[in-house]
């Protein structure tokens, strides 16, 4: 699914990711944890092609293709999805029109016919229900005036509509109340399939009780300093990150 080999990346002029390698097979869930500023969001941004983020060396293969050569929208159409840590508010652009355009783009890429407005509306309404967002949110501007938790649920709704093959969730659990956390987790779990993989970036072991990962990685100082199974998250919860730095050093 995704193969990152010896990736070095920088933001503006600063080197952030160092010699990072990560291999994700179809159907797997990988959790990435690590201290603030470690480079977790940078990884998501590099994967999705955000301007200003540059891979200086290394390779990334996504579904057998060279990801780094693809445009932002090509990556999305190929099935890569990044749920933003800070979703963007776009007043004046209706959520519904935006969602339909993105779903149309993905369907077209997959050789599927465009959905009629009516059919899309039906699907969008059903999906908004699954993330407990009132259908009225579909008519508002994209994330306009949404609360923090509503924005995160809107991200998950987009993910459900787009049916990506690789979902990167960047701290989707931050700022969620307990109920919303369960809604998001249930959404992710309902999408688990042997063909779909997830990268879940989080600071909290709590989320991983609901979304059980196959692997947990610790990203610190721009590299993966430790990888393990789901029990690693518990260990981190108990001990923090400092012991790892000692271990690496």
């Amino acid at each position: 699914m995704l193969d990152i080999r010896n990736l070095n990346a920088r933001v503006e002029e600063t080197e952030i990711l160092r010699n990072l390698s990560l291999n994700i097979k179809p159907g797997e869930i990988h959790a990435i944890m690590g201290p603030n500023g470690a480079g977790k969001s940078t990884l998501g941004n590099i994967l999705s092609g955000r301007p200003g983020y540059e891979a200086t060396s290394g390779e990334i293969e996504f579904n057998g293709k060279n990801l780094l050569e693809m445009d932002i929208e090509e990556r999305a159409r190929e099935g890569l999805f990044l749920a933003f840590q800070y979703p963007v508010e776009i007043p004046g652009v209706s959520n519904m029109e935006f969602l339909k355009a993105s779903v149309d783009a993905r369907r077209k890429h997959l050789g599927q016919p465009e959905l009629s407005s009516f059919d899309f509306m039906k699907i969008a309404r059903e999906t908004s229900k699954r993330v407990s967002l009132d259908a009225a949110f579909l008519k508002r501007g994209v994330n306009e005036g949404f609360s923090g938790g509503e924005k995160k649920r809107n991200e998950i709704m987009q993910m459900m509509l787009l049916e990506p093959s690789l979902c990167i969730l960047d701290e989707t659990d931050s700022g969620l109340d307990i109920d919303a956390l369960q809604v998001v987790a249930a959404g992710v779990n309902s999408m688990r399939s042997p063909e779909r993989s997830f990268i879940v970036v989080t600071h909290y072991q709590r989320l991983l009780d609901f979304i059980v990962p196959d692997y947990v990685h610790v990203l610190a100082g721009g590299r993966i300093v430790k990888s393990g199974g789901k029990e690693l998250a518990l260990e981190l919860e108990a001990k923090g990150y400092s012991w790892l730095e000692d271990e690496v050093a």
């Binding site: 301007p51 932002i72 999305a76 990044l82 935006f98 355009a101 993105s102 783009a105």
Partner: peptide, 15 residues
């Protein structure tokens, strides 16, 4: 940032 957000959902730059 808004441009990136929309494109990351599959919209072309022009769209």
């Amino acid at each position: 940032t808004s441009m990136f957000y929309l494109r990351s959902r599959g919209l072309t730059e022009k769209q």
